[in-house]
Each structure stands twice: as C-alpha cells, then as structure tokens.
C-alpha cells in the first residue's frame, strides 16, 4: 500500500472546481444532533465496558484501522501517516474476536479493566454520494487509568468515520484513527478508540 497519502480527506481545490462540494451537516441541525448523540453514546458504552453493545453499532462490513504516525519533515508530511503496518487493521470478525476475549476470564491486559473517559469533540459531518451515509470527523482524547498509577495515560487523535443511517439509528461502516503520537505512551491498545 502506498504510504504517500494526503493528511486529510478534504476535497482538493481541483475537486471543488469539477464537482460540487459535499454538503456539510451544520451544527444545530436535527441531523447533526442525532449523529453527535450517537457518538456520545458510543463513548459512554465503551467507557462503561459494554463491549457487546458496542459491537451492535458496528456494520458487518466495517473497516477499522489505525495507521502509524511518523516524525517526518514538513515537505514529507504526507508520509507522517503510514498505512503499511498499522496499530489496528480490523474487520467485523476480528473486532468481535477482540470483544470475545475481553469478555472472557483471562484478558489480563484489561482485567482488572482500565478506567477510561473518551472525550469526543470537534465533530464535523458531511453528506456523501451515498444517500443516508455520512462522513464524520471527530477529535478524541482518551484518558486511561490503571491500578494505583495516579498519572493518567492519554491518547489524542482524530477519527475519520463513515456512518450509515439504519432506520432511526446509525451504524459505523468505516473508521480510521489518526493518532498524534509516533511512539505510543501506553503499553498496548487493549482499548478501542
């Protein structure tokens, strides 16, 4: 796979001249509110360790990835995101298997579980070519506390998602997690982002 990729999925100027810009779903609209609500629910579900409920929000064809970040010079910034060996490269089956393990009795990386907060902000939503399907970008800050360690482990980043309306709810069809750290400050990703 080519590591030389754009930092964002925003349309380029050329695209804007040749194709109509995807319509933004503005903050304050009813749709924005429903989608934001779904994101807050997801965060609460994971923070409450309700993994089985979290799986219900995942589409059967989900692609869930977390590329690596690299320290590169400004002229090479496209290479700051490397999608070859990723931290997560998951589909519905592998995410379900991860959840199955976490719900077992010997997933010691998260048993006893971390106490986590997923703070989700800066949600920006666009329509896509597919009716009822939206591109959602959000910032996150994950705080993770384990055992008696008084120092919170932190992880920040942006998520580039695609969600689908299924009746009056949504499902997560795609998620790419763009981390801010080249060297992660926690000993594993036994938690979902």
């Amino acid at each position: 796979m080519d590591a030389d990729v754009a930092l964002t999925v925003a349309p380029t100027e050329t695209d804007e001249r040749t194709a109509p810009a995807p319509r933004k779903i503005l903050m304050g609209t009813e749709l924005y509110g429903r989608i934001a609500e779904a994101y807050f629910e997801e965060a609460a579900t994971l923070d409450a360790l309700k993994y089985a409920e979290w799986v219900e929000w995942l589409a059967k064809d989900i692609a869930y990835t977390c590329p690596q970040r690299m320290t590169r010079h400004l002229k090479d910034q496209a290479k700051s995101i490397d999608r070859r060996v990723m931290h997560f490269d998951e589909n519905f089956n592998t995410l379900s298997a991860r959840v199955k393990r976490l719900r077992g009795i010997s997933a010691f990386a998260e048993d006893p579980p971390s106490r986590t907060r997923r703070l989700i902000t800066n949600i920006r939503i666009q329509e896509t070519d597919e009716p009822g399907t939206y591109a959602v970008r959000s910032y996150f800050l994950l705080s993770r506390s384990r055992f008696e360690n008084a120092t919170l482990m932190l992880m920040s980043g942006e998520r580039l998602d695609v969600i689908r309306a299924i009746g009056d709810r949504f499902e997560l069809a795609k998620r790419e997690i763009i981390l801010d750290q080249a060297v992660l400050g926690m000993p594993n990703l036994a938690v979902f982002l």
Partner: peptide, 14 residues
C-alpha cells in the same frame, strides 16, 4: 502481536 496484539497486550501489562 505488538501494540494491539491479543497475545502481547497481556505481556506488556505484566
């Protein structure tokens, strides 16, 4: 293996 690896996430927490 590695960061999110189901085997090694237990090692790195041990």
């Amino acid at each position: 293996l590695g960061t999110s690896g189901l085997v090694e996430q237990d090692d790195s927490d041990t």
